[in-house]
């Protein structure tokens, strides 16, 4: 164990299960103290901080759900165990350049090398970059559970700060992003400390003809859709370490305008 002063920085002991199939993994989940482990970059932080003290982790790395492909309807299909870096480098993202641009500034290369798409979506921290963008793009996830599969919009995954609508014995298995078609999109964030820090604000804008989708994150307890540009003024904004509510409200005015401008001038 590493020690700095008297502070214990190591992890509390736990068991590690290594299922070889999705069915086996699902059967291991559900009990108290059991958590799935995908990339682990976020989970390890929560365990180090003592927020989570699981007695058993179920390692999902051997499930083989890490393919990236284009579906028959032109949609992007991403296996949940795909690393963020593998997605970022996928040639298929030429058709979804806004996702590639967003991934390039998501945390840092080392974290993206390990963190997975499924873990990113299942974590529920409102400061994450893909949930607002994928919500605005109308993406869905396939979720496997003991009773079979269900599909839900990414937007419906979040119930509150670090709270998702996933049951304990469910796993996200695949992400589906509809074809861009003529849509144009942008995601902008403002980090107030270092470039790779969690954002104080994230704004995703998708323009589809006369229809505009706007989803705000980091300033709210979960990714939140704005019914209109004007609705930004009435949004309930949370203060956190990255900025006060008052500051974020001003950031939102500035960044929403910038994001709309960038989306209007984007090739996709």
């Amino acid at each position: 164990m590493l020690k700095i002063g008297e502070e214990e920085r190591g992890l509390s002991p736990f068991e590690l299960a290594e299922p070889r199939s999705l069915r086996e993994a699902l059967a291991l989940l559900g009990a108290d103290g059991v958590r799935p482990l995908s990339g682990g970059t976020a989970l390890m932080l929560m365990m180090k901080a003592g927020v989570l003290r699981p007695t058993r982790l179920v390692n999902l790395r051997r499930l083989g759900i890490d393919q990236i492909e284009r579906g028959n309807g032109g949609e992007l299909r991403v296996g949940a165990m795909t690393t963020l870096r593998a997605l970022e480098k996928s040639p298929l993202l030429k058709e979804w350049p806004v996702i590639a641009r967003t991934l390039r500034t998501l945390s840092n290369v080392r974290v993206r090398n390990v963190a997975t798409v499924g873990g990113h979506l299942a974590h529920g921290d409102p400061h994450m970059d893909l949930p607002p963008l994928l919500s605005a793009l109308g993406a869905t996830v396939t979720i496997a559970g003991p009773k079979g599969e269900r599909t839900t919009p990414v937007e419906a995954l979040y119930a509150g700060y670090l709270e998702t609508t996933l049951a304990r014995n469910e796993l996200i298995t695949q992400l589906l992003v509809p074809a861009m078609g003529a849509r144009r999109a942008a995601y902008l964030k403002c980090t107030t400390r270092s470039a790779d820090d969690w954002p104080a604000l994230g704004v995703a804008v998708v323009l589809d003809g006369r229809k505009t989708s706007i989803v705000v994150s980091a300033a709210t307890d979960r990714p939140t859709r704005l019914a209109s540009v004007e609705a930004a003024e009435g949004l309930r904004i949370e203060s956190d370490l990255h900025g006060s509510a008052q500051y974020k409200k001003q950031l939102l005015r500035v960044y929403l305008a910038r994001a709309i401008h960038e989306a209007r001038h984007a090739s996709h």
Binding site: T41, L45, R61, R110
Partner: peptide, 12 residues
């Protein structure tokens, strides 16, 4: 592939 050794379980 570069990883953060402090967030990577040795067993993996």
């Amino acid at each position: 592939t570069a990883v953060s050794g402090c967030l990577y379980l040795a067993a993996l």
